[in-house]
């Protein structure tokens, strides 16, 4: 009996007049996503906007381009330049090496366990950054690192005498590649899995060589996901600080370290120049993403 009355009530509620239902429904409709949007606005969008606006204000709060102009001082331009170089080099090396590894494990006819082991390891290594990673490379390629010492004693090759330095552009790039390759593998393997075996067979029966098939089908199909991942790797390296900081202290002048120092101690003696540096970082990663979106819409009319 209770059950019956309950379900009757539920039905009565359901068939309430439409006007009443609508006035009740609209706010509840949005209620479910409100916490998310409050969170996003307060802790992602507003703080970022705050810096972006601050980049165009002087100490008195007046609009100015002076901070942006000040970005073009030699010291800051150099920092941006080396950051861009390291990010670009590590993302490109990481992307191509990661692609090679992904193709090897998916299409190379290697045993199955290698594929799953590589994917698990990639999940780990792509999240292995910061201090532990920096230290791993110090232990490997530092002045007293295992590889440095072994090369010196076994082959007589003194890396450091040949101008190698872990605390340099190449040192940082090699270290960053450690998390860039696995990130590429994790993202691109599903895309390679998406290449159907029948495409290759159809191309073969139509007389195409393996190279022609790759040029006309595989590369165009993989290209958008590949490029998207390169952009992601670039942003990943561009914002990274812990690894570089642990590795080089402040001896390598990259943008995040410069900004870090500025936040800690206002080394530039101009708070709004700090905003401008942050603005510049978002500008560059944003630009990379806009380029990607533009490219995607242009080249991918065949995608739904």
């Amino acid at each position: 009996m209770t059950d019956l009355s309950l379900s009757n009530k539920a039905i009565a509620g359901k068939t309430a007049p439409p006007a009443e239902a609508r006035s009740l429904r609209l706010p509840t409709q949005w209620l479910g996503v409100t916490p998310f949007f409050i969170f996003a606005v307060m802790f992602l969008i507003l703080p970022t906007l705050y810096l972006m606006l601050g980049a165009f204000q002087n100490e008195a709060g007046e609009f100015t381009f002076a901070n942006i102009v000040a970005l073009f001082s030699a010291n800051i331009v150099a920092a941006y330049w080396i950051s861009i170089k390291v990010s670009l080099a590590s993302s490109l090396i990481g992307a191509f090496a990661g692609l090679a590894v992904a193709i090897a494990i998916v299409r190379g006819g290697l045993p199955d366990w290698i594929r799953s082991a590589t994917l698990t390891f990639s999940g780990v290594a792509s999240n292995f950054a910061g201090v532990p990673l920096a230290f791993a490379f110090i232990a490997t390629l530092g002045r007293l690192g295992l590889v440095t010492v072994l090369l010196n004693t076994l082959v007589g090759l003194n890396l450091y005498a040949h101008g190698f330095n872990l605390l340099s552009f190449w040192g940082l790039t090699i270290t960053y590649v450690y998390f860039q390759i696995p990130l590429m593998v994790v993202i691109i393997v599903p895309a390679i899995d998406g290449l159907k075996r029948e495409w290759g067979e159809a191309a073969a029966t139509l007389g195409a060589t393996q190279a022609q098939y790759w040029r006309m089908v595989v590369i165009p199909v993989l290209w958008p996901s590949f490029l998207g991942t390169v952009i992601l790797l670039f942003a990943n390296a561009f914002g990274a600080i812990a690894t570089a900081y642990a590795l080089t202290g402040s001896s390598l002048n990259i943008v995040p370290i410069l900004l870090y120092a500025q936040i800690r101690g206002d080394v530039l003696h101009n708070a709004h120049l700090g905003y401008a540096i942050a603005f510049g970082m978002i500008f560059i990663t944003g630009l990379a993403n806009i380029f990607y979106i533009w490219f995607r819409t242009r080249s991918e009319r065949w995608l739904k």
Binding site: A235, A278, M281
Partner: peptide
């Protein structure tokens, strides 16, 4: 219909470096 907006927002932290976000927090 909100999916694209929400997905865009969830991807923002991949574009905005952590150091910038925390910088914003410190100032705000």
């Amino acid at each position: 219909q909100l999916r694209p907006v929400v997905e865009f927002i969830t991807l923002l932290p991949l574009v905005i470096p952590a150091i910038v976000i925390v910088f914003g927090y410190i100032r705000m």
